[in-house]
């Protein structure tokens, strides 16, 4: 199958959703065409505000994202959503149900929703997610929301992607306190407590306050904690206001530069690291050399360091083996 990437990029830049969807599929399968396309459309990116919404399973992320979309749509802004759910490690299959919650926006031309299975291996997910965000950005979405499960252990490190991160929790989830202790607190710019009408919401609020500690505003941003009820939309207006304030804060304080450096440093690292790894594991020639060297180390004909040096050299300056 030959794919005319130039044509797809051209169509995408005209706002063609079909072309965007196609490019996303290519990005997900890590195809060289996708990377070529990203090169072309990259100059047209950079104007979207990228928001990460992350929280444990069952915390109501999709329902909340639906309400956030509503707020932005009411403001006249266009929205792109990437919803990532885990794939089965055994079969590679996935059941992606995040759209259900947002189905009222299915037919809104100002909204584009894409579901992703984490598939995951060799950093493919993180990489594909960057690309899909770029595609939504080039498609002209004002706001891009990346929804991921969990925080910290998640395969998409949201911190590498989003400018503003909303960390979602709900009252009475035991393992949440674990996450707080584990220090993922640092990644959240805004803390939302969903299902705030349940018993324990106040306790969760106090726990978060405590976990945030005294240096909550040390970087000049107050890290607000906001109670929401995603099912009814209560508190979502306030949440979106806080998200927008965070963006303004990044811009006016100049922190946006640090934020970008943080993200692009990580993205570049991922791409470089995994380009090497993929070459090593996917390219049949390199794979042969790799296996040969493994054998040699086994037979003690060489040592791991020498083998590694040879591999790196081969990747940088390919020679016939």
């Amino acid at each position: 199958m030959t794919i005319d990437t130039n044509q797809l990029v051209k169509e995408l830049l005209k706002g063609n959703r079909r072309a965007a969807a196609r490019l996303m599929t290519l990005a997900e399968s890590m195809s060289p065409e996708a990377h070529a396309a990203i090169k072309q459309l990259y100059p047209h990116t950079g104007s979207a505000h990228i928001i990460g919404v992350t929280g444990p399973p069952g915390s109501g992320k999709s329902t909340l994202v639906d309400k956030i979309i509503k707020e932005y749509r009411d403001q006249g802004k266009t929205v792109g959503v990437v919803a990532v759910d885990p794939s089965s490690p055994f079969t590679g299959g996935a059941l992606l149900g995040d759209r259900i919650r947002m189905s009222r926006f299915s037919t809104d031309p100002g909204v584009f929703i894409r579901s992703m299975g984490s598939r995951g291996s060799l950093g493919g997910l993180a990489w594909a997610t960057y690309d899909i965000v770029h595609i939504l950005d080039a498609l002209g979405k004002d706001i891009i929301i990346v929804e991921t499960v969990g925080a910290g252990q998640a395969e998409v490190n949201i911190i590498q992607i989003a400018e503003t991160i909303v960390l979602l929790s709900i009252p009475g989830l035991g393992d949440d306190i674990q996450t707080i202790k584990a220090g993922v607190m640092e990644i959240g710019d805004i803390f939302a407590i969903n299902k705030a009408d349940l018993d324990g919401a106040d306790r969760r609020y106090a726990e978060l306050e405590m976990a945030l500690g005294l240096d909550r505003t040390s970087d000049g941003w107050e890290h607000p904690i906001i109670k929401v009820i995603a099912t009814t939309g209560e508190g979502v207006e306030e949440l979106v206001k806080a998200i927008q304030q965070h963006h303004e804060y990044l811009v006016t304080s100049g922190k946006i530069k640090q934020n970008q450096e943080r993200r692009f440093c990580a993205q570049l690292e991922t791409i470089v690291e995994h380009s090497f790894m993929r070459k090593l594991f996917v390219d049949p020639e390199e794979r042969k050399l790799f296996q040969k060297l493994v054998q040699e180390v086994c037979e003690r004909k060489t040592d791991p360091y020498t083998a590694a040096e040879r591999l790196i050299l081969q990747l940088i300056q390919p020679q016939d083996t």
Partner: peptide, 10 residues
Amino acid sequence: YGEYQEPIIF
């Protein structure tokens, strides 16, 4: 009253 949204269960 609004409309109900079910938890997503497969």
